[in-house]
Nucleic acid binder design. Structure first.
Lengths: 141, 141
DNA sequence: ATGGGGGTTCCCATGATGGGAAGGTCAAGG
DNA sequence: CCTTGACCTTCCCATCATGGGAACCCCCAT
C-alpha cells in the first residue's frame, strides 16, 4: 500500500490530479489510513495509469470515464471501445484541420511580409481589414 | 455611434467578449452615453475586427495585444510583426504535431481492434498497460 | 522532542468563452 | 402618458484540466 505521492510517481498522475479525479468521480474514492491518508495498491495504480494513457491520447475526462467503464465491464463489446476511439480520432482530425487552416493563412501572410525595418506590413493590413493593396487579392479573378 | 450590440454584430465579436477585452485592457475603454451605455464608432469596430481576425488565426490574447500595439505604432518594423506571426506558426505546428501523434497512436490501436461483439480489445489492453498479447508488440525485436 | 518531508482541505488562477439574474434604459405603439 | 419588449449595465458562476499556495496535521528518523 502506497500513499498518494508514491502512487503519483508510480502512475505519472500528479497527486493534485489524483485527488481531482476522485472528487469528480472519475475514479472511486481511495481507501484511507486511520489518520486520513489515502492509500493505493497496485490495482489503483493501474487505474491511474489507464487514465493517464487515455488522457495522453487526448480523450477528454468524460470519455476517459466511458473507457474506464468499458474496461471494468467484462461483458463489453470491443465495438463500443472502437467507436469511442474513432470518435476521438475524428475530434483530433477536426482540431488538426482547424489549426492547419490557421497555419496556412498565417504562412500566406508571412510570405507576403518583407520582415524588414520598414513599417509596411501586409499582415497588419490584413488584420486591420484593408484590401492589401496589390498583393494577390482575395478575389483572384 | 453604435451601442455594444450593434458593434458586436458589425465586428463578429460577442458583446460579452467586447466587455471582457475592455476589462482586461486588451482594448481601451469605450465611450459612454449619459446613461452608461458603451458607444462605438467605425474606428472601434475596426479594432474589434482586428482582434477577431487575430483570434481566428489562433493568436492568444496576449499576442493579440502585441499585434495591436504594433498596428498602432506607425514606426514599427514589419520584421517585428513577422516574428510574431512566425512564432504563432511554430506554436500551431507544435500543437498539430502533438495531436497527430495522438491520432497515429489511436489509429494503430483502432486498427488492431476487431470492433465486434466480443470483449477482447487491444485498445483497452493497451490503456490498461498490458503487453497486448501477440499483436505487434512495442519492442518489435 | 524536533525537524523535515509528507499528507489533508480549501481557495484561487489560468484562457476564452458563455449563461443567467437583477436592475436600468430606450423606442415604438396604444 | 404608459406599457412592452428589446437592449444595456454589473456581478456571479461554469466550463476543462491543471497548478500554486496557505493552514494545518502526521509520520519517521535522529
Amino acid at each position: 500500500m502506497m500513499n498518494i505521492g508514491e502512487a503519483a510517481r508510480a502512475s505519472g498522475v500528479s497527486a493534485k490530479m489524483i485527488r481531482y479525479y476522485e472528487e469528480t468521480g472519475l475514479i472511486p474514492p481511495a481507501g484511507r489510513t486511520g489518520s486520513g491518508y489515502r492509500t493505493y495498491g497496485p490495482k489503483e495504480v493501474q487505474v491511474l495509469r489507464f487514465v493517464r494513457r487515455a488522457r495522453d491520447l487526448g480523450f477528454p475526462m468524460e470519455k476517459v470515464g466511458d473507457l474506464l467503464a468499458l474496461w471494468r465491464d467484462r461483458e463489453r463489446a470491443s465495438a463500443d471501445v472502437k467507436r469511442l476511439a474513432e470518435g476521438q480520432i475524428e475530434a483530433l482530425e477536426t482540431r488538426i484541420r482547424e489549426m492547419m487552416e490557421m497555419k496556412a493563412a498565417l504562412e500566406h501572410l508571412v510570405h507576403a511580409c518583407a520582415g524588414d525595418a520598414r513599417p509596411d506590413c501586409p499582415i497588419l493590413d490584413d488584420l486591420g481589414g484593408r484590401v492589401a493593396a496589390n498583393h494577390c487579392s482575395t478575389t483572384k479573378n
